[in-house]
């Protein structure tokens, strides 16, 4: 019983830690280290996002996507000419004519989305 009482007393002594005079300065140092680490992390995330975007863009260019889009646009024009002969009043596929522009915009959005997704994934890690 006396042993248990002494052990509890000892725990209280340990818990009664004195306030050190430089407690504020110590906390400031820890906060500075936290901020430094955070800044480095943000740079890393930004760099990784940028790299992801560049890789995505290069993959799109290397896959000849734009040439294929232009070919699809040409095909659409031929198709529209054929359809116009069948039904002159209808404008069946005029939208396809501008497919090249749409693909460019979509590609740009895809790159941004990939960069954003990569950034989020790294942040979660």
């Amino acid at each position: 019983m006396a042993e248990v009482e002494f052990e509890r007393r000892l725990e209280r002594f340990f818990a009664d830690a004195p306030d050190l005079p430089d407690a504020g300065a110590f906390a400031d140092r820890v906060e500075r280290r936290l901020n430094t680490g955070w800044t480095a992390r943000r740079w890393l995330i930004g760099a990784a996002g940028g790299a992801g975007g560049v890789i995505g863009a290069s993959q799109l260019i290397m896959s000849n996507l734009f040439q294929r889009a232009e070919a699809a646009g040409d095909s659409a024009k031929v198709l529209q000419a054929g359809l116009t002969q069948i039904a002159p009043r209808a404008d069946w596929v005029s939208g396809f004519a501008s497919a090249g522009v749409v693909v460019w915009v979509a590609s740009a959005l895809a790159i941004v989305a990939m960069g954003f997704a990569l950034t989020r994934v790294i942040e979660e890690l």
């Binding site: 818990a15 407690a23 504020g24 110590f26 400031d28």
Partner: peptide, 12 residues
């Protein structure tokens, strides 16, 4: 917020 925790418990 974490800095405040360090301020409170750093000495301990």
């Amino acid at each position: 917020a974490f800095g405040e925790l360090v301020r409170r418990h750093g000495s301990a």
